[in-house]
Simulated assay, not measured.
Amino acid sequence: MFHKVKEVVPLQDMRLCVRFANGSTKEYDVEKLVARFPQFAALEDERLFEEVQVDVGGYGIVWNDDLDLSCDELWKNGVDVKTPFDGLMAFSDASELWGLSESTLRKAVAYGKIEAGIDARKFGKQWVVTQEAMRREYGNPVEVLRLFRCVVIARRGFGFCWPEQGGSTIGVTLLNFAKLLRSLSNERRS
């Protein structure tokens, strides 16, 4: 699983503060790379080091065409940092991780499934939600996607389509998904 990068901020002593799409924040020490790989020695130039930015799609960070780091490296070797915003994520990030539309999340707030002011809050035009609320209502994001893939592979006759590489987004409603799960569980009992 990719841990997409949402934001990167250069810190003192060749360290980076990296915020991920899942709401986690980690600190990454670039000095260790300089010691192991000579090509990273260019980052000792403060101006270049401060030019760090998130790569397109959030799959890493870049300084220039020659220097970059993958999101997996940052996730694996970064050190967790506690912040007041840990566990918060934008609706857009939550919808991507859980495979839901943003309107589904807004409806969950409207119907009280996700409590406004406790589990989610709107700041200007942007909604944020806690990871805890998302897990409580929709389970673990990886498990949900794995379950959905298995169901679709097992029952292609329902007309559901999981996108192949380069395909379009998932075209399934939660109601149809629930019906599909019920029918599969009924078939297992038979």
Rank of each mutant, 00 (worst) to 15 (best):
M1W: 01
H3C: 05
E7H: 11
V9H: 09
D13S: 13
M14C: 09
F20Q: 03
A21N: 04
A21G: 07
G23D: 00
G23W: 04
V30H: 02
V30D: 01
E31M: 12
L33E: 06
R36W: 02
R36I: 05
P38A: 13
Q39R: 15
A41P: 03
R47L: 09
L48S: 02
F49W: 05
V52G: 03
Q53T: 13
Q53G: 14
Q53K: 15
D55H: 10
V56L: 14
G57D: 06
G57I: 04
G58F: 06
G58R: 07
G58W: 07
G60L: 05
I61S: 03
D65R: 15
D68S: 13
G78K: 04
V81A: 10
T83P: 02
T83R: 12
T83Q: 09
P84G: 12
P84A: 11
P84N: 13
M89D: 02
F91Y: 10
A94G: 05
S95H: 04
E96V: 04
W98D: 00
W98R: 01
W98V: 00
G99K: 02
E102I: 11
S103L: 09
S103F: 07
T104F: 00
L105Q: 02
R106S: 08
K107Q: 14
A108Y: 02
A110H: 15
E115F: 02
G117S: 07
I118F: 11
D119Q: 02
R121Q: 14
R121T: 14
R121I: 13
R121M: 09
K122V: 11
K125P: 08
Q126C: 08
Q126F: 04
V129Y: 01
V129E: 00
T130H: 00
E132L: 10
E132N: 11
M134A: 00
M134E: 06
E137F: 05
Y138D: 03
G139H: 01
P141Y: 04
P141E: 07
R146Q: 13
R146C: 03
R149M: 08
V151D: 10
V151C: 12
I153D: 12
A154H: 08
A154Y: 06
A154E: 07
G157Q: 07
F158W: 14
G159E: 00
C161I: 11
W162F: 05
E164G: 14
I170L: 14
V172D: 01
T173Q: 05
L174I: 06
L175T: 13
F177Q: 11
A178M: 10
K179M: 10
L181M: 11
R182K: 14
S183W: 11
L184W: 07
S185N: 12
S185F: 10
N186I: 06
R189P: 03
R189K: 13
R189E: 13
S190D: 09
